[in-house]
Amino acid sequence: MGEHKDRNIECVLAILQKKNPASTKEIMAMRDLFPKLCAGCASGGDVVLAGKSLVEKGIVERKWSSIGFIWELVSDPGYEK
């Protein structure tokens, strides 16, 4: 896993530790709080990819709703907070 993706994974975790659960739109809006972690293009694709990889690891669950996907931190990621 490359450094860029690692940083975005940390970004999603940092946001969800502040607001859990959160919609994609909310996560995008909170990226500014963690400028060193939330890297990549303004369009936010990197953050979504990072979120999907956390879902694959079982650390985050993703559910569909009428306002888009809701992301929820469901287990201790094992990262230092």
Partner: peptide, 25 residues
């Protein structure tokens, strides 16, 4: 109300029989 990435992801992942692959951004 909905982020563009979610729309692309909906079509990629949430349809019963198809995956419609588009770019968001």
């Amino acid at each position: 109300e909905i982020n563009h990435n979610d729309i692309a992801e909906y079509f990629n992942d949430m349809l019963p029989q198809h995956k419609i692959l588009m770019r968001a951004g």
